[in-house]
């Protein structure tokens, strides 16, 4: 009886694994089909759709802008968030829970609403240019990752190590840079990558904050899809998947992936 249940469960496990990966494999396969309309099974083999990506100015500039925005926003979030996490975990702040809630509030409000609100009050309201508002939006997205992942790391980091450093004659600031940072650098890099991926992939906020002068990759693909149905999108998708793979590999090397799962759970994905 137990054996049989086990056998069924195994079959189900492999089936779901297949269903999880099959759609992505399909995307890869279609990117090599030579016909302009995607049909099954694909005919021929070509790399021209990959070449075609480069002839789409929206994709090329979109990639560059998305990359730049993601790097800037992630960097900002870490620079601003790290001191906050340090204060929350080390300084015995009253109402730490309350601060925590504020810092995590970007996950509590639907992203599409954040995008709309930023557009209305910052772009229309006080006439800020799109770029800084876009970076602000992505910064807001990234802050909760910094808060969650870094809090977990700092709570694990023995405070007596810092005390030993103070007593050895290093001031609190010196200790932070010479003892704390070197020990959490792996986590910081993992956080940076998580923020980067999340920002680079974001659509709901980006949607409101791009324009003719400001093209972002995910929304560019979205627009392209409205009017075209050819393997170029498959090719871009493959590039994006390779990027994801690269990021995961980097994080695995930082030993940060084990933590990532838990933190992703907290957030719905759009």
């Amino acid at each position: 009886m137990r054996q049989k249940k086990h056998w069924l469960l195994t079959l189900y496990g492999y089936l779901m694994l297949l269903l999880l990966l099959l759609p992505l494999v399909l995307v890869v396969v279609t990117s090599f089909g030579s016909q302009a309309a995607i049909t099954f099974p694909i005919k021929g083999f070509t790399l021209k759709w990959y070449a075609n990506i480069l002839s789409q100015p929206d994709f090329v500039t979109g990639f560059k802008t998305s990359f730049a925005v993601a790097v800037t926003a992630s960097f900002l979030a870490i620079v601003v968030g790290t001191p906050a996490v340090y204060a929350l975990t080390r300084c015995g702040i009253h109402h730490a829970n309350w601060f925590q809630t504020v810092f995590l509030s970007p996950t509590l409000i639907p992203e599409i609403v954040i995008g709309f609100a930023l557009f209305q009050s910052l772009v229309i309201g006080i006439k800020l240019p799109l770029m800084p508002v876009l970076i602000t939006g992505h910064f807001l997205l990234s802050v909760p990752y910094v808060i969650r992942m870094l809090t977990a790391r700092l709570l694990l980091f023995d405070q007596t190590i810092e005390e030993a450093s103070w007593l050895s004659g290093a001031s609190k600031i010196k200790t932070f840079f010479r003892v704390v940072i070197p020990n959490i650098s792996g986590t910081l890099l993992a956080i940076f990558i998580m923020c980067f991926i999340n920002s680079f992939n974001n659509i709901p906020i980006t949607l409101f904050l791009n324009g003719p002068s400001l093209t972002m990759l995910p929304t560019a693909i979205l627009n392209y899809l409205q009017n075209n149905y050819d393997p170029t999108v498959s090719a871009v998708s493959v590039i994006l998947m390779l990027l994801t793979g690269l990021m995961m590999w980097l994080m695995e090397r930082m030993n940060g992936l084990t933590h990532v799962n838990e933190h992703l759970n907290q957030k719905g994905q759009n």
């Binding site: 103070w166 007593l167 003892v179």
Partner: peptide
């Protein structure tokens, strides 16, 4: 402040700097 008192402390859980070698720990 603590870092100017010229005292030192041996902690129950050792509190060594994990990113530094034995030599560097002592030299810190």
């Amino acid at each position: 402040p603590a870092f100017k008192r010229n005292m030192s402390m041996v902690f129950q859980n050792y509190a060594l700097f994990p990113h530094l070698s034995v030599f560097e720990n002592v030299a810190f």
